Amino acid sequence: MTDLILTLFRANNLTLTWGDRLVAPLGLTSARWQVLGTIVAADRPQPVAWLARDLGANRQNVQRIVNDLHKEGLVTFEPNPHHRRAQLIVLTRKGQQTFDAAIRLYDPKVSAFAEGLAIEDIETAHRVLMTLRKKLEGDNIAEGQT
């Protein structure tokens, strides 16, 4: 398990560096791209705290990124009918266009990464990582309660 975790750390660092290079021409970083993707994936506008939860990230870090995206016109804030102070984050047209451009850069690269890998192996790796993620989330919840 230790070898898996150490490999996961290294792969994560390499993936973030790769993502930064990939989307740099669009004025994005991997972190900004992840936040945009989380907004796109949500079924409705969400406050920063929910985006952070979906990312498994620190709320303050996501707030900083959202503020940067807002300054660049990629997201906007809308009133939240359920919470006066927790505004909803909404992608602007420019934000959607930027995200779509990032995906156009990403798709051929990820397809090349998948070459030579059996779909069953990709699915197995995904299941293992999802199981590890759920255990870590459960451990973090338990740690926060003690």
Rank of each mutant, 00 (worst) to 15 (best):
I65N: 05
Q97C: 01
N67A: 13
A42W: 10
G56I: 09
A118C: 06
D68I: 03
N80A: 00
V66I: 14
I119D: 09
V128H: 03
R10A: 12
L26N: 01
F77N: 04
A118L: 13
E115Q: 15
N58P: 01
D107N: 05
L4P: 01
R53P: 01
V110Q: 11
L129R: 12
A112S: 12
A42C: 06
A101G: 10
L136V: 10
Q96A: 12
F77W: 07
D43C: 01
E137D: 14
L55G: 04
A52P: 00
I89D: 08
P25Q: 11
F9V: 13
P47D: 06
A24C: 00
V66Y: 08
N58R: 09
Q96E: 12
W50F: 07
T131D: 13
N140D: 15
K71E: 13
V128K: 05
N13H: 08
V110R: 09
Q60Y: 09
R59Q: 12
L16V: 15
L36Y: 02
L88W: 04
A118V: 04
I65V: 14
L51Q: 03
V66N: 12
P47H: 07
D139W: 12
R133S: 11
I89H: 03
T131E: 10
R59A: 15
L51T: 01
H83S: 13
Q87T: 06
G19C: 08
V48H: 09
P108E: 11
R53I: 02
A24P: 00
R104F: 03
L51H: 10
N140C: 03
Q87L: 14
G138Y: 07
R10K: 12
V35I: 10
A142P: 01
T98G: 00
F113R: 07
A31K: 14
V40I: 11
F77Y: 12
E78S: 10
G27M: 01
H126L: 11
G37W: 11
D43L: 06
K94E: 13
A42K: 12
N13D: 15
L28T: 00
G144Q: 11
L28M: 05
G116C: 02
W18I: 02
I122E: 10
T17Q: 11
Q145M: 15
V48F: 04
A11Q: 10
V48W: 02
F99T: 01
D54K: 05
I122V: 15
V62C: 06
R59I: 08
A57F: 08
T15A: 15
T98W: 00
H70G: 04
V66E: 06
T15G: 08
L51C: 02
V90R: 12
G73K: 05
P47C: 08
P79V: 04
T7L: 09
T29A: 00
H70N: 08
I89A: 04
G138C: 05
A42E: 10
Q145N: 06
F77A: 10
G73H: 08
M130T: 07
L74T: 00
A125Q: 10
T7N: 12
A42Q: 11
G116L: 04
M1K: 10
V128R: 06
L6R: 14
D107F: 09
